[in-house]
Amino acid sequence: MVAFLLVPGAGGDATYWSELVPRLTTGGHEAIAVDIAEDNPALGLPEYATIVSNAADGRREVVLVAQSMGGFTAPMVPVDLRALIFVNAMIPVPGETPGEWFAATGASQARREIEQAAGRGPDFDAEWSFLHDVPADVLPRLAPSREPADTPFGQPCTFTAWPDVPTHVVVGRDDRFFPADLQVRVARERLGLEPRVVPGGHLLALANAAGLAAVLLDTAG
């Protein structure tokens, strides 16, 4: 049996994983969807890591799955890992802040380029960026979005090296927020890994839960 520890992206809402959890647990595995009140300015990256560690509740050899900004929490979580899997994630280098990551990787420019190619103006549209491929029957079940506090964006990711465990990167082919080409390049440069590219946008666990579950079950061994 595998215990999947599911770390959400900015906003921190555990319901993001609601379509994925039943697909992971049908084979007898365990899936723990972590909720982090990222709209609380009193919390930052160290507190996020503690919340994730507490959710593991002493389990050993967990598969930590980090979505989007959860990539900055992942290396700071002191749990015994079986594997580490990034999903449309911000992959940091030691000491980097989430705010620095966008300029360092060219993420903002990459997003703007696909917006311009689609004939869109400079105003950010969360629905266009995040919800464009989430199934219509799933949309009504989404929790109200939380606006993440500014606190973690200026905090360094305090780790010295990646854990010596199998590490994988999953990229949504149709991601409009972190375009696939950007993610593939960052994974190669920062981890020396070739990602698995699957159909779906930034909210991959909602847009293509079955496809993501298949990849997670396969990579977790």
Rank of each mutant, 00 (worst) to 15 (best):
residue 116 Q to G: 01
residue 156 P to S: 13
residue 150 D to L: 12
residue 218 D to W: 06
residue 109 Q to D: 04
residue 32 I to E: 03
residue 41 P to A: 06
residue 134 V to S: 05
residue 11 G to N: 07
residue 97 T to I: 14
residue 30 E to R: 14
residue 150 D to W: 14
residue 152 P to D: 13
residue 40 N to M: 00
residue 210 A to Q: 13
residue 115 E to Q: 14
residue 27 G to C: 04
residue 120 R to L: 12
residue 72 F to C: 08
residue 169 V to K: 01
residue 94 P to T: 15
residue 170 V to F: 01
residue 15 T to H: 14
residue 160 T to E: 09
residue 168 H to W: 02
residue 217 L to D: 14
residue 193 L to G: 02
residue 28 G to R: 14
residue 112 R to F: 04
residue 111 R to M: 14
residue 55 A to N: 08
residue 171 V to W: 03
residue 186 V to C: 02
residue 90 M to A: 11
residue 35 D to P: 08
residue 179 P to N: 03
residue 61 E to T: 11
residue 122 P to C: 13
residue 88 N to Q: 03
residue 70 G to C: 14
residue 33 A to S: 15
residue 150 D to F: 08
residue 201 G to S: 02
residue 60 R to P: 01
residue 23 R to D: 10
residue 202 H to R: 01
residue 111 R to P: 10
residue 152 P to N: 11
residue 69 M to F: 12
residue 49 A to S: 14
residue 151 T to S: 14
residue 183 Q to G: 13
residue 94 P to W: 09
residue 106 G to N: 03
residue 77 V to F: 11
residue 2 V to N: 14
residue 10 A to K: 10
residue 47 E to G: 04
residue 4 F to K: 01
residue 135 P to L: 12
residue 134 V to Q: 04
residue 74 A to K: 13
residue 183 Q to R: 03
residue 78 P to W: 02
residue 116 Q to K: 05
residue 205 A to D: 00
residue 61 E to K: 07
residue 150 D to K: 12
